[in-house]
Simulated assay, not measured.
Amino acid sequence: MPVKVQESDQMTLTIAQGVDVSIRTLAQMSASEAGMLLAQSMAVSPRPEWSIPDLRAHAEASLSDKALRINGRTVMPLSYVDLDLSQILADAFGWLISRGLVGPASQQSGSAGEYRLTSAGRAAAESGSAGHAEATYRLHADLHAALGEARLLFERGSYQTAVFAATHQIEVRVRELAKLGPESYGTQMMRDAFHPEKGVLSTGDVAAERQAIQALFAGTIGAFKNPASHRIVRFEDPTEAADIIHLADLLLRISERSATLRV
């Protein structure tokens, strides 16, 4: 029968020699929360490379002076007994790897199974936010080939330029598909190309839906492409910039499908 031990909710263990965390808090963390905690711990640790077994062993060692002695034997806090630390660390590492925040240690300095923070991981740890990494992960989808430059600019952190490059590709592709000249551009070109009655790219059986598509294209260019053409527009939220690039992907696909349906 297990010995039940009363312990404080603040009973902590140490992650990567850098950060103490409550056992109860760690047990309730999502993979992304645990991943960020791990990244921040690795960033301040004097040791650059860590493996899951090393992290577990270090965390368990940090509890040794907090364990209780009952009837001559060591008893770990009950909350720790119920904690699946290996699973938590595996989930955290999986999240960090998928977002490009950690990479394999070099053969010269580390052994197999050890990881170290990437440049993006260190930046995320220092800022306390994985916003850029999460938004970049959103762009790992199969984007339209025309958006390759926009994706690269985004990964470099140039959100404004990435949004302009993505929405500019809508303009370029619509002009090509509608067979319009270089004098056609901007919101007026979108209104002409997707005119509900006479637009070359307008498709659909319901007039209201054709008008909605026309408004969608014109609104996207007017709201996201044109402002960046005339002044500096700063995107502080990388997720917002990523969503606009995804919108550009959708509109490129709609325009090409519309051109096919009109043939």
Score class of each variant (00 low, 15 high):
157 G>Q: 02
126 E>D: 15
86 S>R: 04
50 W>G: 12
222 G>D: 05
149 E>S: 05
37 L>R: 05
203 T>A: 13
162 A>S: 10
198 K>G: 14
229 S>H: 00
259 A>K: 03
50 W>R: 02
66 K>D: 08
178 A>I: 00
13 L>I: 02
108 Q>I: 11
204 G>L: 00
96 L>G: 12
81 V>D: 14
153 L>Q: 07
243 D>C: 02
41 S>W: 04
48 P>F: 01
175 R>E: 10
64 S>R: 12
171 E>T: 00
31 A>T: 03
32 S>H: 04
46 P>T: 03
237 D>Q: 13
195 H>M: 02
181 G>S: 10
161 T>F: 15
153 L>C: 12
131 G>P: 07
65 D>Q: 02
154 F>M: 00
124 A>Y: 13
13 L>S: 01
9 D>S: 12
178 A>M: 02
236 E>V: 10
90 A>L: 08
186 G>N: 02
105 A>M: 03
92 A>T: 00
202 S>W: 00
89 L>H: 06
3 V>E: 14
252 L>M: 05
247 L>R: 06
196 P>Y: 00
24 R>P: 06
253 R>D: 04
161 T>E: 14
65 D>T: 12
244 I>R: 07
189 M>V: 06
78 L>D: 15
198 K>M: 04
114 E>R: 01
99 R>Y: 14
40 Q>Y: 09
236 E>G: 15
10 Q>R: 08
156 R>C: 07
82 D>F: 09
173 R>I: 08
84 D>G: 08
80 Y>E: 07
84 D>P: 14
119 S>C: 04
